[in-house]
């Protein structure tokens, strides 16, 4: 099993993801430059956080035209798990591999802080090791993480169980107070319709070791690892 960590010019969570996967979770992982066009050797693709192309124009708007994106699209269609974290989430939305869009935080400021997020659906490659309703403590770090979508899309993703993660209070209440960026219905992470592409604003790779303040991020990676091992929750090609 091998993870591919996609590196765009301006990506900066690549090394953090690599450290968490290789040093902490003892997985095989490699950096993949954004001009690469053969992704066949990777079992899971991670689009890490950062400011690809400086987030100029709009976050993810330029990166989505990198040569690798065509291959990621194909991999996603073929059922390969694709995880976009922060800027990766923004890129996947721009590439239309995920529904909705991420706009400027409602308070107009960058925000780096610990958040609590609630796992809403565990029937997924990305959350199957969590328990339903589990509250994870995972930090965010973004200026544009305010999730928006049109009413029809929102209805659909809600109905299909595509909303995996929502911001909540320490006690699990999903309310305005717990919402760090103005996201619609406190959405912190959504999947595509077939469930094999997840975008999330919080950074699980930042909390896989207790010395960094918590280990709740592991469950996301452990879920993918377990799913790839057992074949559970994996999707067949469309």
């Amino acid at each position: 099993m091998k993870f591919g960590i996609i590196v765009f010019p301006g990506t900066w969570s690549d090394t953090d993801c690599h450290h968490a996967l290789v040093e902490i979770l003892e997985q095989d992982a490699e950096y993949v430059w954004h001009e690469t066009t053969d992704l066949s050797e990777y079992d899971c693709l991670i689009l890490p956080g950062g400011f690809s192309y400086g987030d100029y124009l709009r976050p993810g708007a330029i990166a989505r035209f990198s040569p690798i994106m065509r291959e990621i699209e194909i991999a996603a269609q073929n059922g390969k798990p694709v995880l976009g974290i922060c800027n990766g989430f923004q890129i996947l939305c721009e590439a239309k591999l995920l529904p909705g869009a991420l706009v400027r935080n409602s308070h107009l400021q960058f925000r780096c802080t610990w958040t609590h997020i609630k796992v809403e659906n565990i029937e997924s490659q990305f959350t199957n090791k969590a328990s339903i309703g589990q509250i994870l403590r995972i930090p965010i770090s973004h200026g544009e993480g305010n999730y928006v979508a049109d009413e029809i899309t929102l209805g659909k993703i809600e109905q299909n169980g595509q909303i995996l993660l929502r911001y909540c209070t320490e006690n699990g209440d999903v309310n305005e107070k717990a919402n760090p960026n103005g996201s619609y219905k406190n959405i912190a992470g959504v999947t595509n319709e077939s469930g094999n592409v997840l975008g999330m604003m919080p950074h699980p790779e930042r909390c896989c070791e207790s010395v960094l303040g918590g280990t709740d991020g592991r469950v996301i990676f452990e879920s993918v690892i377990s799913s790839l091992k057992t074949g559970q929750y994996t999707r067949d090609p469309i």
Binding site: W12, S13, T15, D16, A20, R111, C112, P139, R206, E209
Partner: peptide, 13 residues
Amino acid sequence: FQQYDHQVQTNTI
């Protein structure tokens, strides 16, 4: 301080 990313590189204790 919360307007600055203080955790990236995962070394911040």
